[in-house]
């Protein structure tokens, strides 16, 4: 069943006197529980695509449908509520509030939504289990390592049980080992929670965890890579790398 659908998605930016076409009519669909990676060289439009899919920005043309909602037709306020309830975000720089503890950061979306965080103790514990931070729950961000901070950010993105989880370069600010564990975590959330995950990345290792990799160049989808679930990780990675090299050449 399709949970997210982009059709004829176009986005233009005014840069001085020039109009830059970041996306040139993109069509694609995401199914419930799918793990997708979006790759492409710098300026290919992958971040723009993520912004449009998450309702952070509105397209110049075309449509994004999340569940039953047509994101581009929503008012600013409606889009905010749609994000609040249906989209989880994970950022490259974690973006945790330095003044809140790990568990308070995780509960933040619920607090914003006016929910009583005490009623979500069970969900919190479950998420802390999932990200493996039970013993670090009372720590402030500056007492956590980069990897731990990103785990908190993932738990925060999952706390509202969103329809999709969007991650923008989630491993961009982490070392290889930590990055691997974060990608494994996202994969687990996809497997165990049936969570739909879309990751924008330029790291082939990160992308190799996805069930489907979409390649963008100059605002168009130029290739899709869909390895079988049995393909080993390093084989997937070399497949992705060779595609990237071909695109960048």
């Amino acid at each position: 069943m399709s949970i997210l659908k982009a059709s004829k998605l176009r986005k233009e930016y005014q840069l001085g006197e020039h109009v830059v076409e970041a996306l040139k009519g993109i069509n694609f669909e995401v199914k419930q529980g799918e793990f997708i990676a979006i790759m492409g060289p710098s300026g290919s439009g992958k971040s723009t695509l993520l912004h449009l899919l998450g309702g952070l920005d509105s397209p110049s043309d075309g449509e994004v449908t999340l569940g039953d909602a047509h994101l581009s037709q929503l008012t600013e306020y409606q889009a905010t509520l749609a994000r609040r309830h249906n989209v989880g975000f994970v950022f490259q720089f974690f973006n945790l509030l330095p003044t809140l503890t790990a568990e308070e950061n995780i509960l933040l979306p619920l607090i914003i939504d006016g929910k009583n965080p005490n009623e979500y103790e069970e969900r919190l514990n479950h998420l802390l289990d999932l990200v493996g931070l039970h013993d670090r729950r009372s720590h402030k961000p500056d007492q956590l390592s980069g990897g731990e901070q990103q785990r908190v950010a993932i738990a925060r993105a999952l706390v509202t049980e969103p329809a999709i989880l969007l991650a923008d370069e989630p491993t961009g600010n982490l070392d290889t080992r930590t990055g691997t564990s974060i990608m494994e975590l996202l994969q687990r959330s996809c497997r165990e929670l049936s969570q739909t995950v879309i990751v924008v990345t330029h790291d082939p290792r990160a992308a190799s965890y996805a069930a489907r990799v979409i390649f963008l160049r100059d605002g168009n989808i130029v290739k899709e890579f869909k390895p079988s679930s049995k393909t080993p990780l390093n084989e997937r990675m070399s497949g992705i790398m060779s595609t990237m090299q071909a695109l960048e050449s």
Binding site: G54, L56, Y77, T80, L81, R83, R84, H85, G88, F89, F91, N95, L97, L108, P109, I112, D113, R156, A157, T160
Partner: peptide
């Protein structure tokens, strides 16, 4: 970030 995660 707060706006992203749904603060109006």
């Amino acid at each position: 970030m707060l706006r992203t995660i749904g603060m109006t």
